[in-house]
Structure formats: structure tokens, C-alpha cells
Design a binder for these strands. Structure first.
Lengths: 288, 288
DNA sequence: AATATACGCGAAGATAATTTTCTTAAACTA
DNA sequence: TAGTTTAAGAAAATTATCTTCGCGTATATT
């Protein structure tokens, strides 16, 4: 995963000093490349140690490695157009173009952030579950309902809860073999966390779709998918992440559909085999 | 000019020690990135100073700058193979890529299909309306709720109805100056059409977001937006149109936000703060 | 409300990396 | 062969990076 994605995935947990570093790096990336730690720290109004803690947090062992990552990030991004901010003077066509561009960018980023392992496991669990419970509040509730609409068509037993009382009840009476899937942009909504803990206590498999790697929810669930995005001035990260979330859901859906299709094919195949065996055995009977 | 080009341009005048450096860098570029000068020198069977003379000769002032150049060189060369790789070796990565690609395609198409005139008029009507009613059933109801979530934050009076009884009632008692906005993928849902007709009878402005230009709904409403998409094998048009619809909604939102002006940003900020406080307080509740 | 605990943060010292300078050895020239 | 030039490494000097510590603030606890 690249540097900017890592930054985004942590963007809910940055301290003020760290935010100054992030801002400087975003605004003066090229210059930052040339600065030694102490000068970078000075330009960010931050101590050397804070810079070191920052890139360690992002997963780089040494300053040299961090620099290398930043350099590569810039080399890649120079090729593509970067996010454009929307301003008041923009004409409608500009708004259209910019919103579309940022949406595309956000979706393109999904490919880098999505954990295939988690996705695979979630699909597996969904596939063999007795019942799926999707939970989400507020804006994430909208996505939860979308999940229900889609997966229901695949013949899965699924319910969406956008009410904290209902989801609590569902979790309380849940049984082993049932699955809870939480949609939670912030990863901190307490009703959601509590519901997941309840469900886990009942022996259910739990998973989530969220935007931040380091959040309460990622510590609770068995597996999680990340739908993080770069924030822009006019569109909050929550707004773009709605779209990104839907794309992730679609991926989940398509994979599940294929899986179910495969197993259907298997069943067809098996029934054919069964018939063949039946014929063979009866032929032997006939020969005897 | 990039590093490798510079090396090539000097390749006729390298000394034996320098040639060892060049060879190592070409053969172990990735590894070289991680080595400090002395180790790189050692691996090249060369003194530290020789390495320094080498990159100075190539035009880099410091080792850090040289490293940055090498990193970018690698980043640019590494990108291409990743994107060209279209092998079917992994089913899941294939699914991910295709869903993402078709989403991007669909969103990119929006720019061509969107009627700016209709959008402008809808924004104008929304802006000066006393109340906005968003209606949608089934999957489109999910989008309708999303609209409500977004526009409410701008301080607009808005309600979403995903129940055919409720929307009928709302239309029946609607007054002039109120606006009805229908989300309807097929453009044929009879409850929606009937509601719009009722609303129109009450003197309301009506508009819609749909996928087909020639449909019952486009003949009923005053203005409509199209979120048409090309269909793919994997995903139904309804599925992609969900995402495309959200993008259109985002465009609407951003344009409205700009229209409303700076006060909108304040309110967005305030609602975020309010939610944050809610989360914090409920987190305390959860602990108690 | 008061205390305890954790956490963010920067300063300073310790360590490591880098650059410069100096020296040696080899190759070329006369 | 001696003088000159140049390559190249070793060591010293400089600079950068990293670690540790302690202070102050925020958060949790009672």
C-alpha cells in the first residue's frame, strides 16, 4: 500500500502535531523530499521525534524508507491528475467534472486498499451462514439497506437494521452460524460496537465495512473491509466514502453471485453424476 | 532527466569502481534503495567516497537526493506491468478489477448524459423551496434516503419517503412552493408516478432521477436527470446505476452547497461537531 | 473535585550515516 | 626512471537520525 493511502487510513487518529506534518507533506511534497528530518520538523512546527513517530506510525522503519515511499508516491501521482477542489466561482460544468473526477479517483483507490483475504473470508462466511444481519446507523444505514436489497436477490437470508434498538435485540437473540455485518464510516459509533460485541458473545461471525484502519470497530470484528478516501473541501470523506462503500458492496455481491452460481453448477454436476452412476449400476443389474 | 538516462550518458567514461556501482544498481535496484552508503559501497566492493563521487558525477548533491531519484525511477517503471497484467490467475482480483472498472466507466459516462439545464433548474427550485419531498421505493428508496441525509445538513427542509402510503399522503397535503423529487430507476413504478401526479395537481414542482429517457416518469415531471449506464455481464444496470445516482446526487449537493454559500460550510461543520459530541457522549453511556 | 493515568510532545544526548580531507597506489608521460 | 596525474580507500569531521527522558496536558477514575 502506498503512503497517501496509509495516511488516509489513519486520518481519524492524527494528533495536532501530526496533522501539521500531513498538511505540509500534502502541500509541499516535492520540497519535503529534499529536507532532512530536523528541517522538515521545523517547517511543520514540530519536534524531530514527532516526525519520526509519524513515519513509524505509517509503517516505515527509517526516514530513508519514508522518503523513498514519498518519492514513489509523487512519481506515480504526477502521471494522473490530482483531486481538484471545488470553489465558489466554479460554473456548473466545473462542479460536474470535479465531482466525477474525485469519485473516480476514490473508486480507483479501492483496489489498493481492499484486503482480498478479508473479502474472501467474508464471502465464505456469508455463503455458509444461516442468516446475515446488516447493521448501520444514519448515512451508513442507507448502505446497510442497499446491502440487504442486493443480497436478498441472491436468495440469502438477510436483514438490515438501521435502528439501534432493533439491532441490539437481533444480536441478543442471535445464534451460532449467524453473521453480523456492520457498516460504519467512523468506526466509532457506540451502538454498532455494542451490537457487534453482543453478537460475538452469541458466537456469531462479525465483520465490518469502515473507513479507518485504527478504530474501535476494527478491534472488535473478525474481519473488516476498508473504504477510505481522500477528503476534499466540498465533499467530506463521508460523502465520497458512500460511493466507495457501494462499490465494495458490489464487489462483495458479484463475488457471492459467482460463488452461488458455482455451487449451483456443482449441484447440477453432482446430480448428473448421480444419474450416471444410477444408470451404470442399473446397467450392471440388467446384465446380470 | 532521470537517473538511468544520466548513467547511460556517462557509460563510456566510468572507471572500474564506478562500473561496479552501476552494475549493482541495475541488478539490485530495489535492494540498493534500502542500503546506507557504506553498505552499498561494500556490496559494490568499493569505498564510500567512490559512491559519493559517483552520484555527484550523475548530478545529485546528496545521497538522499540520489536515493529519491532512484526511487522515482523504480516507481515509474513498476507501474506499467501492474496495469498491463490482465491474467485470469486469480478470480477474486479479477472481480475486484472489473467491478471497479465498470463503476468508473459508468461514472465517467455521467458527464455526457447529464442535462445541465435540468440540473440548474432543479438546484434553483430546491434552493427556493419551502420543503423538499424525496420519494423512492425499493432500491431507489435507499438513494432517496441518502439524498435526505445529505441535503438536511445544508439546512434544507427535506423528507424522504420510502413507503407508498406515506408519499401519497405527503403529496395529497402538499402546498405550492413545495418540491417533489423522485428517484426511480425504471421510471415506471406506478406508486411513484401517481404520487408525482398528485403533487403536480397541488401545484408543486416535480423532478426525477431515472435511468431511461423514454419512460412514464419523464413525461410526468417538470425536469429530470438521467443516470443511464451501459450494462455489463456481471452487474445489472440497476446495480451500476445505484452508484451513478449517488454521484449525480453528490453533484446536486455540491452545487447546492455552493449556492447556499459559506453559511453552508458552517452548518456542515456544526453538524459534524454535533455528531462527534453524540458519539462521545454515547461512548460514555456505553461504558456506564 | 481531586487524584491517577495515559498520552502527546519536544529537548538533549547517543548513535549512525554522510561528507570531506588526506593518503596511498597505480597508470601514464616524458 | 622520476614526475605527474588520477583513482580509490581510510580516517576524520560533520551532519543527520534515532532514543530516551521529562514536562505538560488531556483523559479516566474514585
Amino acid at each position: 500500500m502506498n503512503l497517501y493511502s496509509r495516511i488516509r487510513l489513519h486520518s481519524n487518529r492524527f494528533t495536532p502535531a501530526q496533522e501539521r506534518i500531513v498538511r505540509f507533506i500534502h502541500e509541499n511534497a516535492q520540497e519535503a523530499l529534499g529536507l532532512p528530518i530536523n528541517e522538515l520538523a521545523e517547517r511543520c512546527q514540530v519536534g524531530d521525534a514527532t516526525v519520526i513517530r509519524f513515519y513509524r506510525l505509517m509503517g516505515y522503519e527509517t526516514y530513508a524508507m519514508f522518503r523513498v515511499a514519498l518519492a514513489q508516491e509523487l512519481a506515480e501521482n504526477d502521471i494522473r491528475p490530482i483531486y481538484e477542489e471545488v470553489g465558489n466561482q466554479d460554473e456548473l460544468t466545473d462542479v460536474v467534472r470535479k465531482v466525477i473526477a474525485s469519485s473516480i479517483q476514490g473508486i480507483a483507490d479501492v483496489e489498493k486498499q481492499l484486503s482480498l483475504k478479508a473479502l474472501e473470508e467474508i464471502v465464505r462466511q456469508f455463503f455458509q451462514s444461516k442468516h446475515i444481519h446488516v447493521i448501520g446507523l444514519g448515512a451508513s444505514g442507507v448502505v446497510a439497506q442497499d446491502v440487504m436489497h442486493k443480497l436478498m436477490r441472491l436468495g440469502l437470508k438477510i436483514n438490515a437494521y438501521t435502528d439501534s434498538h432493533l439491532m441490539t435485540i437481533a444480536a441478543t437473540v442471535a445464534e451460532e452460524g449467524e453473521v453480523f455485518f456492520a457498516i460504519c464510516h467512523s468506526g466509532e459509533t457506540s451502538d454498532i460496537i455494542r451490537t457487534l460485541e453482543l453478537a460475538k458473545g452469541q458466537g456469531c461471525y462479525t465483520c465490518a465495512l469502515t473507513s479507518y484502519m485504527e478504530s474501535s470497530i476494527t478491534r472488535v470484528v473478525d474481519d473488516y473491509l476498508l473504504s477510505c478516501t481522500r477528503e476534499t473541501k466540498m465533499r467530506s470523506d463521508a460523502m465520497i466514502s458512500r460511493i466507495v462503500q457501494l462499490v465494495v458492496i458490489d464487489i462483495l455481491y458479484v463475488k457471492l453471485a459467482l460463488q452461488i452460481g458455482d455451487s449451483a453448477m456443482d449441484r447440477v454436476h453432482q446430480s448428473r453424476l448421480a444419474l450416471k452412476q444410477l444408470r451404470n449400476s442399473s446397467r450392471q443389474d440388467g446384465a446380470s
